[in-house]
Amino acid sequence: MVANPAHVASSVNRLVADDGIVLATQRWQGERSPGLVFAHGFGQTRHAWQGAARSLNARGFDATTFDARGHGESEHVPRGDYHMEQFVADLLLVAHDATPAGGRAPVLVGASMGGLLGLVAAGESDPARPPFSALILVDITPRWETAGVERILGFMRAHPDGFADYEEAASAIEAYLPHRRERKTEAQLKPLLRQASDGRLRWHWDPALLDGVVQESERYQPRLFAAAARVRVPVLLLSGTRSDVVSSHTVDEFLRLVPHARHVALNDATHMVAGDANDAFTREIASFMETL
Rank of each mutant, 00 (worst) to 15 (best):
P131E: 08
S133A: 06
S133R: 03
S133G: 15
S133H: 08
S133T: 09
A134R: 15
A134H: 08
L137Q: 09
V138G: 05
V138A: 05
D139T: 02
I140H: 06
I140N: 01
R143N: 10
R143S: 14
W144P: 00
A147G: 06
A147E: 10
G148L: 12
G148S: 14
V149G: 03
V149E: 04
E150W: 09
E150V: 13
L153F: 15
L153V: 13
F155N: 07
F155I: 15
F155K: 13
M156R: 14
H159Q: 11
P160T: 06
D161H: 15
G162E: 10
G162C: 12
F163S: 09
F163H: 08
F163L: 09
A164N: 05
A164L: 12
D165E: 04
D165F: 10
Y166G: 02
Y166H: 14
Y166K: 08
E167P: 09
A169E: 07
A169Y: 14
A170N: 03
I173M: 10
I173L: 07
I173H: 02
A175Y: 07
L177N: 12
L177R: 05
H179S: 14
R180T: 04
R180A: 03
R181Y: 11
R181T: 11
R181C: 06
E182P: 01
E182T: 08
R183T: 05
R183N: 08
K184W: 07
K184V: 07
T185M: 04
E186Y: 10
E186K: 13
E186W: 07
A187R: 11
A187F: 11
A187E: 15
Q188C: 14
L189F: 07
L189M: 14
L189H: 02
L189R: 02
L189E: 04
K190F: 15
P191N: 04
P191Q: 00
L192Y: 14
L192I: 10
L192P: 09
L193W: 02
L193A: 05
Q195G: 13
Q195K: 08
A196Q: 10
S197I: 06
S197M: 11
D198C: 13
D198P: 03
R200V: 02
H204V: 12
W205C: 05
D206L: 15
D206N: 12
P207L: 08
P207C: 14
A208Y: 07
A208Q: 04
L209H: 05
L210Q: 15
G212F: 03
G212L: 05
G212R: 04
V213F: 15
V214Y: 01
Q215M: 10
E216Q: 12
E216Y: 03
E216D: 15
E218Y: 09
R219K: 06
R219S: 04
Y220N: 00
Q221A: 05
R223Q: 01
L224N: 01
L224Y: 02
L224F: 05
A226S: 04
A226H: 02
A226W: 00
A228C: 05
A228M: 05
A229V: 10
A229H: 01
A229K: 00
A229F: 02
